[in-house]
Design a protein around this nucleic acid. Structure first.
Lengths: 257, 257
DNA sequence: TATATTATATCATATATATGAATTTTTTTT
DNA sequence: AAAAAAAATTCATATATATGATATAATATA
C-alpha cells in the first residue's frame, strides 16, 4: 500500500505532540515497508495534506527521523529513506584504522566459508528462535592495507533469510547489510558491540597467521532491526598489532533522544 | 563579562544562517567562560532582544547546542549549561558492564599514586606541550561489584592544572572531570578512545592480580576541550574476564552534524 | 545539436503569533 | 505558621506565511 493512500489517525487531543505522532506514523511506514530504503518520500506539502497539520510540524517530525538516521533530506531534491550501501557502511559499522591514523579506510573482505547447521542453545537464545532451528554460519576475513587482521563469524536464522546460499552471499555486489536489505527485506537499524581481550585459539591463530595464545580483541555484535528484533550475531576476532578500534564521542552526545 | 552585556555581531547578509551564527556566538560564550557549567542562561525572550532575531531562530540555535550536549533545556525552568558531575559521568565516559548485563553501574574508584615528572617525547607530543615540560601522572584502580578490573593512567600537563597536587586530587568530592571543571576551569568536551588487545606486563599483572601475559584490553583515551585542545591522555588496562566494553549505536547516528 | 536560459519543485531559513505545560514565586486563606 | 490558590516565568507546541537556496526539467537560443 502506498503511503499517500494510507489513512493516518492523528489525535489532536492526545497528550503526545502532533510531531511525535507523525514521526511514529512515518516510522511505522518504514517498518511496514510502505517506505522502502532509498525511496523518495512525499514532499512536505503532500505530507501537510496527508496529516492535516502545518508544515512546521511536518518538518519537526521529519527532522527527528533524519537525526535518528532513518531519513536523509536533500535541499532542492527531496527526502529519501536511508539505505545501507558501500558508502554508508564505511563510517557506520567499521571501527578500525591503522595505528595512529584517524582516517577510516574501506576494508578488504574475503570469503572463507558458508555453512548451514543447527543452532546451539546460546545461539538460538540470542537470535530468539526455537532451539535446534537452522542457522547460517558464515566466516569472512577482513583486512586493511593488503594485510588481514579480522576474522568475522556471522550467524543468522535460516528462516529469516529464505533462499540464502553460498552463491548468493558470495556474489553480492554490495555490503552484507545491503544484501539483507535488498534481497531479504531486512533492514538493520542498530548495532550493539561488546568488546573483550582474549587469547587466540588454534583456529583463529591459523586463520590470522599469528602465534597461538596471542592477545586478540573479540567483538560480539548484535545487529537488530525495527523494534529491537535481533537479526544477526557477529563475532569478530581482531589482531590489533597494526590496527586499533576507534570510538569517539562528544559530551552528552549519544544519550540524547 | 556577563553575556547580557556583550555586543553580538550578527550579519544578516552573511551566507551562514542566523541560527548558526547565534549558535557559534553562544558556543564562544561557553568557550570564553561567559557562560559557566551549571549556569542558567538568559531566557529565550532575552536572547531575542540580545540578538535581535525571532524566537524561532533562537530556539533553533539553542536546540542545536542542546543536541550537541552543551546545553540542557528544562521546561518551565530555563536552559542550563551542561556540567560534569557524578550523574553525567556514568553514562558518558564509562563503557563497562558485567558480562551479559546491559546496565551500567557506577564503578568503584581507588587511588594508587600521584607523581609529577618530565614528559616523555611522545607524551609531550600528544599533549602538544614543549618537550621536557612537567606533567602529572596519576594511577587509579577501578572496579565493579567489589572487584577491581581496570588500571587507569592519567597524564595531564602541570601548566594547565596549576596548583594540583595529590591531596587535592584525592580529596575531590566528585568526578575527575568535575575537578577539572570546577577547580581548574577546564571543561572536557569530547573524548576519543582507541582500543587494542595486549599481553599484561609485570606491573599490570601485579596491580590487577592476574597472570603475567594475560590478554588485556588497552584503551588510549584523548580528552579534549573546546577547539580540540588536548587536555588529558588516559590509558586504561582492563582485565575483561568478568566485564566487557559496550558500544551501541543506531543507523547513521554518530555521524550526524 | 549543444548550450544557455528560464521555470519548477523541493527543502532551508526566518518572522510573527497564539496557546499549552511545567516550575517557581507570590499571595491568600485557614 | 501552614496549606491552598493564584500569578508569573520559561520552555514546548503549533499555525501561517514569506523568501532564499539548490537541483532538475523544460525551453529558447546560437
Amino acid at each position: 500500500m502506498s503511503i499517500t493512500d494510507r489513512k493516518f489517525e492523528i489525535d489532536r487531543d492526545s497528550k503526545t505532540p502532533l510531531w511525535l505522532q507523525i514521526r511514529n506514523e512515518l516510522f511505522n511506514s518504514l517498518y511496514r515497508d510502505e517506505l522502502r530504503p532509498g525511496q523518495l518520500i512525499p514532499n512536505e506539502k503532500t505530507l501537510v495534506e496527508l496529516f492535516q497539520v502545518s508544515i512546521g510540524t511536518i518538518r519537526k517530525a521529519v527532522g527527528v527521523l533524519e537525526k535518528e538516521g532513518f531519513l536523509i533530506r536533500k535541499q532542492g531534491l527531496g527526502t529519501f529513506v536511508f539505505q545501507h550501501d558501500s558508502n554508508s557502511f564505511l563510517f557506520e559499522y567499521f571501527h578500525f584504522a591503522l595505528n595512529g591514523t584517524e582516517k577510516q579506510e574501506s576494508p578488504t573482505v574475503e570469503f572463507i566459508s558458508f555453512e548451514t547447521k543447527k543452532a546451539s542453545k546460546s545461539e538460538a537464545e540470542s537470535l530468539n528462535i526455537p532451539a535446534g532451528s537452522s542457522i547460517h554460519k558464515i566466516y569472512n576475513k577482513l583486512g586493511l592495507n593488503k594485510k588481514f587482521y579480522i576474522i568475522d563469524k556471522i550467524i543468522i536464522s535460516q528462516d529469516k533469510f529464505h533462499g540464502l546460499n553460498e552463491e548468493i552471499f558470495k556474489n553480492r555486489a554490495n555490503t552484507i547489510y545491503n544484501l539483507y536489505q535488498n534481497k531479504f527485506n531486512i533492514f538493520i537499524t542498530n548495532c550493539s558491540e561488546k568488546l573483550k581481550a582474549i587469547s587466540s585459539n588454534e583456529k583463529i591463530s591459523k586463520l590470522l597467521d599469528i602465534d597461538l595464545g596471542s592477545p586478540i580483541l573479540k567483538i560480539d555484535r548484535i545487529g537488530q532491526t525495527y523494534h529491537n528484533e535481533t537479526i544477526e550475531i557477529r563475532t569478530s576476532y581482531v589482531h590489533t598489532s597494526d590496527i586499533e578500534y576507534i570510538h569517539s564521542q562528544n559530551s552528552t552526545f549519544g544519550e540524547a533522544l
